[in-house]
Nucleic acid binder design. Structure first.
Lengths: 262, 262
DNA sequence: CAATTCGTGATTGAAAACAATCATCAGTTT
DNA sequence: AAACTGATGATTGTTTTCAATCACGAATTG
């Protein structure tokens, strides 16, 4: 099926064009007919990542133009949103919160806009959420901005994080096993380890597909994480296993109701 | 003149509508004819804050919701744009550039998107311009983000800037007298002084109304600044006076043609 | 007070995009 | 092999939007 691939290229092109592309442009660029592009746009609009206008599409992703947020498969997104809603209940007004990058932490940040918080982040999309907000103070972590995700990393970032202290750090991860948490980027791991050291409480948000997956390098063990928030797709086996660790487990109901945090 | 007011409301409405609004929507919302809306959109597109499509507008401000950039009085903006265009010719591919905050530096940054540069900035809006750009490397300066302008300041910012070296720093200013350059925010001045120390060449972009104005505190003297870019509204008196300093003066023609930088 | 300028609203013919339909083709199933 | 399914490209008539133009009224200017 090359249709999906083509739709991704449509989004990519829209993004490169500064948020908008015309229908003939897209047809020419991708070498297909306008009819096909029209059908693709219908699909993309249906899934909420783009919005049609007379004559073209424009990008509708919540985060301006960083590709990481583009492909929201509706199902995945529902999980992330549920996780974010459950995690939001763990945050209290006045807290000092460190937001890592990642789409789930971004969703959580979105839910917290308007709350009186001290926000610290190395994620540009998250920073944009709070930049104009009068209720939250925003501290930005500097460093080399990783193009794909819009997250500041590198020695400057690690060094600055090392001088901060926060109540809670919200981390994302690429994989979780019984030995601990993993991520796929060494610079990111360095920064995240600093975030762990800087926090009184570490909260990891992760959807259930991450469990059982390793990734490039280990971020930390279970003892470093006080709370894990996950969607209700998590197997019973894993729920029991986490019981045996000294880590609090919050399961976010995917469907409607909420929420039994304990 | 209520035309300006109406254009602001157009932008506001577009922003509230999630980045896009159709032409009939706007006409109905503001109670004017579609013709008027069309003319407004032409103006807004001309000034770069919105982008037209067949059937409507979508918001094109690089800085999502910082109000400081929304209300561009056309006249002032023409100056700033001219200054930015002249300054852009001072920048060479491959340069390492430090962008200060401010609307004129932001305009300049907009013109430079797509060029191969090493970008360093403490301005969130500027960072957003380059974040997803494959041609430029982006280094973000962290710190406390000042809500109104989206600029990172404070000790962390100063400290990080102090560890960087750049080819050129692009600074804005609130006032210029024969004794030097002024700004109105002490934290900002601290950061800008660090930017001056970090740069081989300091370029100040300022419109002609800034000349002769003092402000809260002094940023630096004339000897610290190698180049000043200003619009052609500058008085002959000032042009002569700058001749006597060891600072290069670039006058940006406001109207059409370009450009005699020397 | 007359003239001018500017912003506005309405109209019009031209151009563009839309949705719907049909034909073709490849891969799969029966 | 024949039939079916799904994706694609082309075509059609209809609808929408566009740019240009004219006319009206208010505010400014001489």
């Amino acid at each position: 099926m090359q249709a999906d691939e083509r739709r991704h290229r449509v989004l990519e092109f829209v993004r490169m064009s500064g948020g908008f592309a015309s229908l003939p442009q897209l047809a020419k660029e991708l070498g297909v007919s306008e009819s096909t592009i029209r059908r693709d746009l219908d699909v993309l609009e249906e899934s909420g990542v783009a919005r049609r206008t007379h004559g073209g599409v424009f990008y509708a992703g919540g985060a301006p133009q960083l590709p990481a947020f583009e492909l929201r498969e509706p199902e995945q997104w529902a999980k992330k949103h549920a996780i974010a809603q459950a995690a939001a209940q763990l945050i209290h007004d006045g807290d000092t919160i460190f937001f890592d990058g990642g789409s789930t932490t971004y969703e959580l940040a979105r839910l917290l806009v308007g709350r009186p918080l001290q926000v610290v982040t190395n994620s540009l999309p998250v920073a944009n959420l709070f930049a104009a907000n009068a209720y939250a103070d925003l501290n930005l972590v500097g460093g080399y901005v990783y193009p794909r995700t819009g997250v500041a990393l590198g020695p400057h970032a690690v060094e600055m994080i090392g001088r901060l202290n926060v109540r809670r750090s919200i981390l994302s991860t690429a994989g979780i096993t019984e030995r601990g948490f993993y991520n796929s980027n060494l610079l990111l791991i360095e920064a995240e380890q600093a975030m762990i050291d800087a926090a009184d409480e570490v909260i990891v948000v992760a959807d259930s597909t991450k469990f059982g997956c390793q990734s490039l390098a280990q971020l930390c063990g279970w003892d470093a994480v006080q709370t894990v928030v996950v969607d209700d797709g998590l197997s019973d086996e894993w729920r029991e296993r986490i019981e045996s660790f000294d880590t609090q487990l919050v399961v976010a109901p995917t469907n409607s109701e909420f929420s039994n945090a304990s």
